[in-house]
């Protein structure tokens, strides 16, 4: 594999919520980088901070409750955290786009598809209406919507879920961004439609070389789509590796347990369930956050959060088990 350009680098990002309950540490020291043409999967359960990480990258976190407390988000060497709101507007849609989970709610029901596509194109700079209509049609054709000239006049309710998600994809890539953040884009779709959509995303990626950050709870999607994976638990990345390394040899007990708890198509032996619940993000334990559910827990785990250690081939794990002191 050749070394590709780094598109985005996130360093030690912290996004906290401040409310009556105290401080909720939704994203608590997350670092990763993503290269051109690469797909990074961020996997985790609900409440682990994966969506808040994505929203932080776009600076779309709910204000004023949440704030990026520290860390940097470097896109082409520019730190997004320090940009003003109006500068940030220039970044959204043009350099980073987002595809959300539910196609029923991400399109405006009172405007036609064409209208919404042209609005996205118009935000990219003033051009003639005719030109933009032609471009909107081209956009729909790229996402394989049949008969785009008729579809432009349709309202969202006239389309199926899979079709709507394609339109959203067309809007997302219309300004040829460098990164698309896809937050569980296929959860609301049927399996055969999901396969069509995942393939479409891969094709668009192969043509344009864009980087995709794929947020999901499903290891199947990761196996199907991603080059690299970051596993998140309670606001932190606990393991990060190339997709094959992670599936062949998961190191963190949480990653292992999560993989074992998913039923497989070719096996019926008893599932290994993970007992208990993740800790609440406003009352985190001092030590490792997985300690209370981990089967290999030791005293050290409860007292101190493990450093992230780098194994070979860019595989990093935050667990005391992989560190030398453990064996002594």
């Amino acid at each position: 594999m050749t070394e590709k350009d780094t598109v985005m680098e996130v360093n030690d990002l912290h996004t906290y919520f401040f409310n009556r309950r105290g401080v909720t540490k939704a994203v608590d020291g997350v670092s990763f980088s993503i290269h051109e043409g690469e797909t990074l999967g961020i996997v985790g359960e609900s409440g682990c901070g994966k969506t808040m990480t994505a929203l932080s990258l776009l600076r779309l976190i709910p204000k004023p409750a949440a704030r990026i407390v520290s860390g940097e988000i470097l896109l082409d060497g520019q730190d997004l955290v320090s940009l003003s709101d109006s500068e940030m507007r220039e970044v959204r849609g043009r350099k980073i786009s987002m595809i959300l989970q539910d196609p029923q709610t991400s399109l405006n029901p009172v405007f036609t598809i064409g209208n919404q596509l042209i609005e996205a194109l118009g935000a990219r700079g003033k051009r003639g209406r005719k030109e933009m209509v032609a471009q909107a049609m081209e956009g729909l054709r790229n996402v394989k919507v049949a008969a785009p000239e008729r579809r432009l006049e349709d309202y969202p309710h006239q389309m199926s879920g899979g079709m709507k998600q394609r339109v959203i994809g067309a809007i997302a890539v219309s300004a040829s961004p460098k990164i698309i953040i896809a937050d569980e884009p296929t959860t609301a779709l049927d399996v055969t439609i999901q396969l069509q959509y995942l393939r479409l995303l891969k094709e668009i990626q192969a043509e344009t070389g864009l980087a995709i950050i794929f947020i999901t709870h499903d290891f199947g999607i990761v196996a199907r789509m991603c080059d690299r994976v970051a596993v998140m638990y309670a606001g932190r990345i606990v393991e990060q590796a190339d997709v094959r390394d992670l599936f062949n040899k998961p190191h963190h007990p949480y990653t292992q347990a999560l993989m074992d708890s998913v039923p497989k198509m070719d096996r019926t032996d008893r599932l290994r369930a993970i007992d208990g619940q993740p800790p609440p993000l406003w009352d985190l334990p001092e030590g490792c956050r997985f300690a209370s559910r981990c089967s290999n827990v030791k005293d050290l785990c409860r007292n101190e959060y493990p450093n992230t250690s780098l194994l070979d081939n860019n595989h990093s794990v935050a667990c005391w088990m992989t560190q030398t002191e453990w064996n002594n």
């Binding site: 399996v191 055969t192 396969l195 290891f219 999607i221 196996a223 199907r224 599936f247």
Partner: peptide
Amino acid sequence: LFSAALPAHPDDLGEEIVL
């Protein structure tokens, strides 16, 4: 339907029947 089910490992992408 079976071919659209997601793989358990990045290496077991079987035959794909895209409807």
